[in-house]
Amino acid sequence: MTRDITIGQFLPGHSIMHRLDPRTKIVLTFFFIIQVFISRSAASLCFLIVLLGFLIASSQVPAGKVLKGVRPMIPVIVFTALLNIFYVSGEPVFTFFFLQITKQGLFTGFTLLVRLTALIAGCSLITYTTSLNALAAGLEQLLAPLRRIHFPVSELSMTISITLRFLPTLAEEFDRIIDAQKARGAEFNSGNPIKKIKSYFPVLLPLFMSAFRRAFELTNAIECRCYQGGKGRTKMNVLKLAPRDFCAIAFFVITFFLTIAFNYYFPAPY
C-alpha cells in the first residue's frame, strides 16, 4: 500500500542518465530549471520541448510514466495558466463584463502551461534515474566545501542517511499497524472528515511511539560507538566524475546558450 507510493520513484536501469554522477544530475537539474524560466519565445519553447524529449529518451524512462508523474500537478498548472490568461492586460480579444481575455494573456497562459509541464517532467527525471542513496551522497559531496563556513555538512548528511534508512521501515510499520487495526474492525474511509482523522489515531499513536523507541535505541547505539560527528571521517565510495559527466555538462551549456540565442533572434511577440 504505502510501498506502492514509492518514496522517490527510482526505476533501476542502465541508461546514460542512470550512469551520470548524481552531482552532475543535481547541478544539471538546476540548469534545466533556469533554462525553463528563460525560455520565453515560441522558438525557445519549441527547443525546450525537443530537449525534454531528448532527455526522456536518454533516460529510457517510458514517456507515459513521466507524463503520469505530471498528472497530480495538472490542477495547479491549469489554475496558474488560467490566472494569467485573465490577468495579463493588453489587446483584448474577448470581453465579458469585467472579464477580459487578451492576446498577451493567451500567449503567457499557454507558454506557462508548457513551461510548468516541462519543468515538472524534467525534474522528475532525476528521481526516476537516481536512487535516494546516490542523491544523498551527491548532495553531501556538493555541500562539502560549505564545511569551511561551519555549515554542519556531515550532521546533515548523517540525518539524511538515517532518514532514508528508516523511511521504508516506518512505511512498513505503518502498513502493518493499519492491517492490525483493520483486523480489529477499524474503518479508515468513513465519510465524515473529523471521524476520518479520529480513525487514524490508533495507527498514528503506535507509529510515533515506535519511531521514538527506535530513535532512542539508535542514539544509544551511536553513543556506544563513540560517534562524535563527522570530523575526519572518510567515505567508502567516493564519487568521481567520468568523461560522460563532462560531456553532459558541455551539452547543457550549449543548449543553454542556444536557448538564449533563440530568445534573442526570435523574440516573443509580446
Binding site: A180, K182, A183, P206
Partner: peptide, 20 residues
Amino acid sequence: IRSIRFQIGLVFQYPETQIF
C-alpha cells in the same frame, strides 16, 4: 468486509505494536 474480520481473528507478528 468488516463482519468477516470479526469472524476471522488475526494476530500479527509483534502485535504489541498495535496497542494505543
